[in-house]
């Protein structure tokens, strides 16, 4: 564990809490992609399946439970809460799950470290996490005006990924024999997806203007 990894995990948690707080406080999920949230829930469940029999550290276990729990709450709010569900922008959140899930499933069967069920599910979760933000980015693009909290949510998520890259660089430099190609390449693709958003986020912040994405 190094400081970059720790900062990444905290930023990840913070991003989820910002979103949950926004939904809870405003009783609105306008601008939030349910598709992305459900994909993240699928990512967490397939990756943390080993929670009950593979104990690595209390730190990891607590984060796994918290990520699954908080993301489930977001999905519950958006699907079931009587007021919140009315604010869900289903007409614009039309990205097809299959376009992301199917290629990731095929890829995880073809490229993985060990050919067994849990390893394949873990690999699937790595590939799916890399692209799970796409429905959210498409929704932001479509609705153009991005409210502050939604913008902060995506920004914090991107920052979490950036810190994971720093963590890998640090580990590569300090841990002899450390390499994780599959995770690195997926992580680089994932972080790359945020670059465009980052550019507009920083521009808006510098000019103290509301974040607006170009068409």
């Amino acid at each position: 564990m190094n400081l970059f990894r720790f900062a990444g995990d905290i930023l990840h948690l913070l991003s989820i809490l910002v979103l949950l707080l926004k939904i809870h406080a405003t009783k609105s999920c306008a601008g939030i992609s349910l598709k992305t949230q459900e994909l993240y829930l699928a990512v967490f469940i397939t990756r943390y399946l080993d929670l009950f029999w593979n104990f690595h550290s209390l730190y990891n276990s607590v984060f796994k439970v918290v990520y699954i729990g908080t993301t489930s709450m977001i999905v519950w709010y958006m699907r079931r809460h009587r007021n919140v569900k009315l604010t869900y922008d289903r007409d614009h959140d039309t990205f097809r799950y299959l376009f992301l899930v199917a290629p990731c499933a095929v890829l995880s069967l073809l490229i993985n470290a060990r050919y067994n069920l849990f390893e394949i599910l873990w690999t699937f979760s790595i590939y799916l996490e890399a692209v799970a933000i796409l429905p959210q980015l498409v929704l932001l693009q479509r609705t153009k005006n991005v409210d502050n909290l939604t913008g902060n949510y995506v920004f914090l998520l991107g920052l979490y990924r950036a810190f994971y890259i720093l963590n890998w660089v640090y580990r590569f430099a300090t841990e002899p024999g450390y390499s994780a190609w599959l995770v690195w390449i997926s992580g680089l693709i994932q972080t790359g997806l945020y670059l465009d958003f980052f550019y507009y986020y920083v521009q808006a912040w510098k000019q103290s203007k509301k974040l607006q994405l170009p068409s």
Binding site: R5, D9, H12, D50, N54, H56, N60, F63, K64, Y67, A113, R114, N116, E119, W122, Y164, N167, V183
Partner: peptide
């Protein structure tokens, strides 16, 4: 048992 791969990150 080398069938297990260690995943130490989240």
């Amino acid at each position: 048992d080398d069938d297990e791969v260690e995943h130490d990150e989240l």
